[in-house]
Each structure stands twice: as C-alpha cells, then as structure tokens.
Design a protein around this nucleic acid. Structure first.
Lengths: 108, 108
DNA sequence: CATTTATATAAGTAATTACTTATATATTTG
DNA sequence: CAAATATATAAGTAATTACTTATATAAATG
C-alpha cells in the first residue's frame, strides 16, 4: 500500500510539466540516455539532470549505466502510488471502467 | 480529452498533502460545509478557504450555497484528467487491471 | 596522459506557495 | 438595524522550486 508521503512525492514530481514531459518521453522511448533527453529539450543539461534526479528519487524511473551514458527507463511500480490512490475513488473509477475495458479489448 | 494544463492543474492541486486530505474528506463525507472542514483541520480558516478555492479552480469540487453555509462535493469529472493521463500507461494499467476487477466485483 | 564526451554538483535567483493575522463581505437572527 | 456566524480577501513572510551559469567528476579515446 502506498503511503501518503509516496503519493505526495509522485504527484509533486509529475505535476511539473517539464519533468512530466520527460517522464512521458522516457515511457515512449522505452529506454533513453540523458543526452537524448537534453537534445530536444527546452532546458539546459543541468536542469535535465536535476529533473532526472527528482524522477529517480520519486521512484518513477530507473537508471542503467553504460560506459559514460546513463540510460533511463520507467520504473515498473513507479506509478503504483498514483494507481492505488485513484483506486479509492471507485465510483469515478467505475465510471471509467467500461471505457477502459473497451480500450483494452481493442474494440475502439 | 484532458489538456496538459488540466493535468498539471489537477496534479499540482492534489500534490499538497493538506489540500489532498481536504479533498479526501469531502469525498468521504459526500457533502460537507467549509466550517466542518475547518473544524478538525490543523490550519486556519483562511487557509482552508484558500485550499477550497484551489480545489474549485482545478475543477475538483463543486460548491452549493445554503444560507450562510457553503457545502462542497467532489466534482464528478474532477479526477478525469488524472484517469485519462494514467490511462495512457496501459502496460502498468493492465498490471493493475485484474486487481481492480476483483476489487470491483467484491471478491476480496 | 591529454582531450573529449556525458553527467553531476554548486551557487545564485526570480517566481511560486502555503501559511499566518487582520479585516472585509455575506447571511441569518434577535 | 445590530450582533453573530460563515466565508473570503488582503497583506506579509519563510520555504520551496525550477531554472540559470560555472565548474567538477567520470569514462572513453587518441
């Protein structure tokens, strides 16, 4: 079960648009080096490095060193606290449930 | 579909623990007046008022005036942006899907 | 070893935030 | 209308944040 602190940490981390965009990109690419993230980013290399640290500290990404590159991937359980928290709102959840079911079964 | 700005707004609003606790309480109670929230809160009445404004601005709660009381309820679509955003992570989503299904069917 | 490349850290800053106390604005009630 | 109650706004502040530029560290390569 996710603690309130974990939920706060994950939400705070993803609330920043720049950082969330980075997370989305890492998720899309599967795996990507920091350099790749710096290229095509509006912010400086140190800013990217700081955001990556924040994502890692929040448990949202994991890193793998390969020579002088560090590759980032989404941490499998990283979004867990968010899923858990949303799961408590079963009425809203249920409302979305059918849409989700259709989505997963690929009928649309 | 939820815009990036809406997602940012909802996440930023819920990332604050005090404010998120207020949202959770409103959800739990179904409907509750501001006074009720002030009682049993660690922060001052103005702080509660400011947080309620933030929740309302983010589309997370709706208010209903009754005399000099203002009652708050969770906005039906308020968490929508969060659900939508999480929905994009289908692999993680799917991982939780079965648990959720069990939960909703009340088998545990 | 010297240079280049990849990433991290340091230090500074403007903007934002989450509070506070004090006061203003409704709304009801005697 | 005057007093009481419910909520909002104003103004100030300490802490946090998201950047920047400059510099340090780490690893590969000539």
């Amino acid at each position: 079960m996710a603690s309130a602190i974990q939920i706060t940490s994950v939400m705070k981390t993803l609330a920043d648009p720049t950082r969330r965009a980075m997370f989305e990109r890492i998720a899309r690419e599967g795996e990507i080096a920091a350099t790749g993230l710096v290229r095509g980013s509006k912010v400086s290399q140190p800013a990217v490095s700081q955001h990556l640290r924040a994502l890692r500290d929040a448990g949202l990404v994991i890193e793998r060193r390969d020579g002088r590159h560090i590759h980032y991937r989404v941490a499998p359980k990283g979004l867990g606290p968010l899923f858990d928290w949303l799961g408590h709102y079963q009425n809203f959840w249920q409302e979305r449930f059918e849409n989700l079911e259709r989505l997963l079964k690929g009928s649309e």
